[in-house]
């Protein structure tokens, strides 16, 4: 039987998965998945500082500060690549390994005597623990603290992606053409990068740095293989991520496995099957 904690866990996972699967669509289309990966690692120093300054979930200002590290990452990568002429893959790799290492050192240096930091939790996340911070007002349960941040973020993502669809679309399809029409490519680029940074920061506690990339890339990549229409890709990505979360969660529950890795493993199986079927049978190139 489902208990209350399961419902809270699943809701948290879905809020993360939905934000990620929408934003990830544009990372996949712009071939910037690895930049997303870099961002998710590089926000670590920011997250650690957020922990140090105050309690993690309540200090939303600090979280925004942490997200600045994410945007900074894209700026550093761009600087190394364009100004110092370092090749792109190395620029990405250098930037995130350094910032991630910095974060780890910060944790180790300041972890002693600071109750706010749980080292392993920051690094790997533990979805099963997010229900601990319940918000109860007037005797009624309203959710958890992390949901209170993830929900508004999802709303912002939804508004940006669906209301600002044309901007993300034209920028992802052909940024140079958009520029000749006087459209600010910088705005759409940094809008995407900021949202990706925010979602990785907020997901840290629940799924950790490495697995959040899974939510960003796997469902959108699966949807990309199956559709020929951008709106359908966004919707399909949502559907697939929902499926992954539900199946993954209950599998993990049943076999007593770590939750978020199981969810990503399930999504891995889904894309694996999609690829196998497509390679072996050309009739299934696209379905919608």
């Amino acid at each position: 039987m489902l208990n209350l904690n399961d419902i809270l866990n699943i809701s948290t996972a879905l809020l993360i998965a939905w934000s990620c699967s929408l934003l990830g669509v544009f990372l996949v289309l712009r071939k910037m998945v690895m930049v997303g990966d870099a961002i998710s690692h590089s926000v670590l120093p920011g997250v650690v500082m957020a922990f140090l300054v105050g309690s993690y979930s309540s200090s939303s200002f600090i979280l925004i500060g942490a997200a600045v590290f994410g945007v900074l990452t894209t700026i550093i990568i761009d600087f190394l690549y364009r100004k110092l002429k370092l090749q792109e893959d190395a620029s990405i790799g250098l930037t995130f390994t350094w910032l991630f290492a910095l974060g780890v050192i910060l944790i180790t240096v300041f972890a002693d005597g600071n109750s706010h930091i749980d080292k392993d939790c920051v690094l790997f996340g533990e979805l099963g623990l997010t229900f601990l911070d319940k918000i109860i007002i007037g005797g009624r349960l309203w959710g958890t603290k992390s949901m209170m941040l993830l929900l508004p973020l999802l709303l912002i993502v939804v508004v940006f992606v669906f209301k600002g669809f044309k901007g993300f679309q034209i920028h992802a399809f052909q940024a140079e053409y958009a520029q000749t029409k006087g459209i600010s490519t910088g705005f759409w680029h940094y809008a995407l990068m900021t949202l990706v940074s925010l979602v990785t920061v907020l997901s840290f506690e629940s799924v950790g740095a490495i697995l959040v990339v899974g939510f960003l890339v796997v469902p959108p990549a699966t949807a990309y293989l199956l559709t020929k229409n951008l709106r359908n890709m966004l919707l399909l990505s949502l559907v697939i991520s929902t499926f992954d979360v539900l199946v993954g969660y209950f599998t993990a529950l049943h076999f007593d496995l770590a939750i978020s890795p199981t969810i990503i493993t399930v999504s891995g199986l889904v894309i694996f099957l999609t690829i196998v079927v497509q390679i072996t049978n050309s009739r299934f190139k696209t379905v919608v």
């Binding site: 289309l29 044309k166 901007g167 679309q169 140079e176 029409k181 006087g182 459209i183 229409n229 951008l230």
Partner: peptide, 26 residues
Amino acid sequence: ETVDWNFPASVKDVVEMGRYQPGKLF
């Protein structure tokens, strides 16, 4: 060759981009 033709867009989608204007993308 400046675009990825696998991009999920139809002929109509691309041609409509000709009508996009800065400031009116929302």
